[in-house]
Design a protein around this nucleic acid. Structure first.
Length: 468
RNA sequence: GGUGAGGUGGCAGAGCGGUUAUGCGUGGGCCUGCAGAGCCUAUACAAGGGGGUUCGACUCCCUCCCUCACCUCCA
């Protein structure tokens, strides 16, 4: 059944907006500038959109999801100079790293990952149109967008133009008509450069997202997103360019994800307080990171701390236990109660996500189900008949949240059962030392035994380095 | 200075004008040969300060204080 409705808070109108879920949902996410490794702040934004997309798809909605790579930028050039490499080398390297990291985080690949350097022509024709309309002008150092020609400038970030100028911290550039005007094309005679009708150079930052989103999603698509820090100037400028170009409203919903902070301060390269995806991945693995990133409402900041990640390890262990109890459940019993609980949790889960994508509440519903199942398991009330009903639902939630329990082969299961049998007979003979040795041996392959009254269950624990 | 977001119990974190959020932690217990895991149970005068509106406010209004973000590149 398709999702009946989806409400998302729109930064532009400052209110929740309902999306038409009967049609394809087109999403454009501003991705990363590939000049360095990705950190947990990037991961949060990308995981939020990944789950949004998975949620819609789990509801059989069609989603077209575009995420760009900014692969031409001053910082890339700077880095290249420092290393004696080309900008191309740098961006290729960090795109590779990006996929290494985000595949490991179990982020579903976007429909497409357009790169700025592959869309220079699209950008140029967009700029040409703006120049023709006299909204952009050619100056000494490049082609600029004349902010004064776009009446609604500031509508997204709620800024007043005169206040922007007076509060500006940037040096005034005399070559521009107005200090607020921003570059569409920068003249340069250093690589990387491209020809343009106005001279050699490279595109400004914002124009790529206008060009590529319009190219792949059309002039008026559903959701445009990114981190909160992109609201100004990036998204503000995108709106100015795109709407000047198309004379139509740009994205229907602007969805912005809050910052990841450390000790209350924004995680960023310039503050030197970043935790790289790679680093945290090694300590905690993808599931914990995902749970952490989804633990609060996407619009609010979330404070990175080892304590919080560790709290999520505990939760994850509960999930693993629950999953394996279901997998190993046998026999039959009545399923009415559990059916009620499932449908309740399922509804709460979906309602939470439909209502401004409240992952925090959705996780509450998810863990409620997990807890309930573990309770049944502890009371020896879990049966195959229950598992058959619950597993598909639970797995759908895993899928939406992007959580993965490592697969286990039939052979592994057989050999584990064999060892458990052996241990059981040792225990019956009260040869506890031998039984414990066997348990240790099993533990080495990551299998944890769970002794119940009349049987021994087990689970394959994900190895988590920071789980001490 | 301007703009925006926010201040909830030890920590994390939702919703809501009147009913227990929830989780982690902590105390006690059950289970076990032991251990782990799990379960049960208890626990929090919770709402930044001060005013108001209301029969009733954590939830609405005003005010003060504080934090963060953006106003430069930033997810």
């Amino acid at each position: 059944m398709k999702l009946a409705k989806l409400k998302i808070f729109d930064t532009l109108s400052n209110s929740e907006k309902e999306l038409d879920t009967s049609k394809k949902i087109r999403i454009y996410l501003c991705g990363v500038t590939v000049y360095d490794e990705a950190h947990i702040g990037h991961a949060r934004t990308i995981i939020v959109f990944d789950v949004l997309r998975r949620f819609l798809e789990s509801k059989k909605n069609t989603v077209e999801f575009i995420q760009n790579f900014t692969d031409v930028d001053d910082k890339i050039i700077e880095r290249a100079k420092k290393e004696g490499a080309t900008a191309y080398d740098i961006s290729v390297r960090y795109i590779e790293e990006y996929f290494r990291d985000f595949d490991a985080l179990n982020v579903k690949r976007a429909t497409r990952y357009p790169q700025a350097t592959e869309h220079i022509k699209d950008m140029i024709s967009l700029i040409e149109s703006l120049v023709k309309k006299k909204i952009a002008y050619v100056s000494k150092n490049g082609v600029y967008f004349a902010v004064s020609k776009f009446a609604d400038y500031g509508k997204l970030s709620k800024k007043k133009i005169d206040e922007l100028i007076s509060g500006s911290r940037v040096d005034i550039d005399e070559t521009k008509n107005d200090p607020l005007d921003f570059a569409l094309w920068k003249f340069s005679d250093e690589a990387p450069l491209w020809d343009s009708p106005w001279g050699k150079g490279r595109p400004g930052w914002h124009i790529e997202c206008s060009a590529m989103s319009i190219k792949y999603l059309g002039e008026n698509f559903e959701i445009h997103g990114g981190g909160r820090d992109l609201i100004f100037p990036h998204h503000e400028n995108e709106i100015a360019q795109s709407e000047s170009f198309t004379s139509k409203p740009f994205a229907k919903i602007w969805m912005h994800v809050g910052m990841v902070t450390i000790n209350g301060e924004k995680m960023s390269k310039s503050l030197g307080n970043i935790r790289s995806v790679q680093h945290v991945l090694q300590g905690y693995g993808p599931n914990i990171i995902r749970l952490f990133c989804l633990s609060g409402h996407y619009s609010k900041p979330i404070d990175y701390s080892e304590d919080l990640l560790k709290e999520n390890i505990i939760k994850w262990r509960q999930v693993e236990t629950c999953y394996y109890e279901l997998l190993l459940a046998e026999g039959k019993n009545e399923t009415n109660t559990i059916q009620e609980i499932i449908s309740q949790c399922k509804t709460e889960f979906d309602v939470a996500l439909s209502n401004d994508f409240n992952t925090s509440l959705a996780l509450t519903a998810f863990f409620k189900l997990v807890k309930e199942l573990n309770r049944l398991a502890a009371d020896e009330l879990l049966s195959k008949s229950i598992a058959d009903i619950v597993l598909p639902e639970l797995e759908r939630m895993f899928l939406v949240l992007g959580l993965v329990i490592p697969k286990i082969t039939k052979d592994e299961i057989d050999s584990i059962n064999e060892l458990i049998k052996k241990r059981e007979s040792l225990r019956q003979q009260k040869k506890y030392q031998d039984a414990d040795k066997l348990r240790e041996q099993i533990a080495k392959s990551g299998i944890e035994l769970i002794d119940h009254k009349n049987r021994t269950a087990w689970m394959k624990k994900e190895k988590i380095a920071s789980d001490t």
